[in-house]
Simulated scan of single mutants.
Amino acid sequence: MKPHDDIDGDVYVSPRYLARATAIGDPGLDPLRDLGWELHNDDLGNAYLNAPDRKVRLGYLPEGDDDGLWRINAYKDPFGPPVWGACFNDSCPTEFVTAFTTALAEAYEQGPASYLARPVSGSNDRDPFLAVAPLINRGWRLDRPRWGAFAVHSPDGLAGLEYTVGDLDPEAELTTRDARWQLWAGTSIDRPYWYATATTDTPVALLKAVTESVSDPTPLPRWRDDTYSYVKNMAQLIPITPPPPPAPTPLDVQRAAARQPAPRPATSVPRWSTTSRPALPSRR
């Protein structure tokens, strides 16, 4: 199997939030599969991961009913409604999903007090602003796009995070884009290139992992032909040069020498000497 850390593409896309999703979802699933979470597939090709205690569930839904490719929910009671939920649509760069599931794996190992930790304003480690801080620290600017919400936008205006204040419908948060948190890229939040949402009680540590990944200045490798045409005019596409061949090891040198043909014996070259027969006189 191809390692996920191999470069898979012919260009680097910068800024990284203008890249699109990768062709496979394995990198997003692996942090939880590595913990022994149970994986099931349906006949359509959708994949489902369940935590051992059934209190966290992930669905990878390429054949789902809408464009929500990734849906992650957590429960206090496995048979009750979700405590929190997050959704990444089918165009969201897979690296952002992987950042979320990696943080979720760490929180799950710490126990319910971590992966069910509600955000608390003013808390040292659970204040919602902690999820916004990575964006502010990397030059994203604050905005008030509408009443009842605040937002931060990337310096080029092509990505944003919007936080809605006030009371929200828990069911709508889980099933629509009307959630507490919405992260997106594009020229408009109404028609984004990709989006991700998270409900009110999503742990701050998981959200912070995503915003750190989104604002990371490191570009992402992609295939030029798979990059959206309208993004090509806005993103910087840097060709990926093939890696140089590895330096030969002493064993390589030894093997190469063994494959060389044996040297031929030197050909004898006649030399003039004092015993050589004198030249015949020329004809007059």
Results as ranks from 00 to 15, higher is better:
residue 235 A to Y: 08
residue 163 Y to R: 08
residue 126 R to D: 15
residue 261 P to F: 06
residue 115 Y to C: 05
residue 238 I to G: 03
residue 119 P to E: 03
residue 33 R to L: 15
residue 74 A to T: 12
residue 8 D to V: 10
residue 72 I to C: 13
residue 80 G to K: 07
residue 96 F to G: 11
residue 254 Q to F: 09
residue 14 S to D: 03
residue 161 L to D: 06
residue 190 D to K: 12
residue 100 F to V: 04
residue 9 G to Q: 09
residue 65 D to T: 08
residue 254 Q to L: 09
residue 253 V to A: 15
residue 15 P to Q: 04
residue 158 L to V: 02
residue 80 G to P: 07
residue 88 F to V: 09
residue 177 R to S: 11
residue 269 V to H: 02
residue 137 N to L: 15
residue 90 D to I: 05
residue 16 R to E: 01
residue 137 N to S: 13
residue 265 P to H: 06
residue 239 P to F: 06
residue 246 P to K: 03
residue 67 D to R: 09
residue 142 L to D: 06
residue 158 L to T: 08
residue 49 L to E: 13
residue 238 I to Q: 15
residue 37 W to S: 02
residue 204 V to M: 07
residue 161 L to A: 02
residue 223 W to F: 15
residue 250 P to R: 10
residue 183 L to D: 07
residue 105 A to K: 06
residue 270 P to N: 14
residue 21 A to C: 14
residue 262 A to F: 09
residue 82 P to D: 05
residue 137 N to P: 00
residue 59 G to R: 07
residue 114 S to K: 10
residue 235 A to S: 10
residue 15 P to C: 06
residue 284 R to N: 13
residue 71 R to A: 12
residue 62 P to K: 09
residue 267 T to S: 05
residue 240 I to T: 05
residue 105 A to D: 09
residue 251 L to M: 07
residue 183 L to A: 14
residue 97 V to C: 00
residue 119 P to A: 05
residue 258 A to S: 07
residue 73 N to P: 00
residue 14 S to M: 03
residue 273 S to L: 04
residue 221 P to N: 13
residue 46 N to A: 04
residue 203 P to K: 07
residue 213 S to I: 01
residue 87 C to I: 15
residue 66 D to Q: 00
residue 217 P to T: 05
residue 140 W to A: 11
residue 131 A to D: 01
residue 56 V to T: 11
residue 55 K to G: 05
residue 191 R to D: 10
residue 146 R to Y: 01
residue 146 R to A: 11
residue 2 K to G: 12
residue 65 D to S: 07
residue 80 G to S: 09
residue 20 R to Q: 00
residue 242 P to E: 07
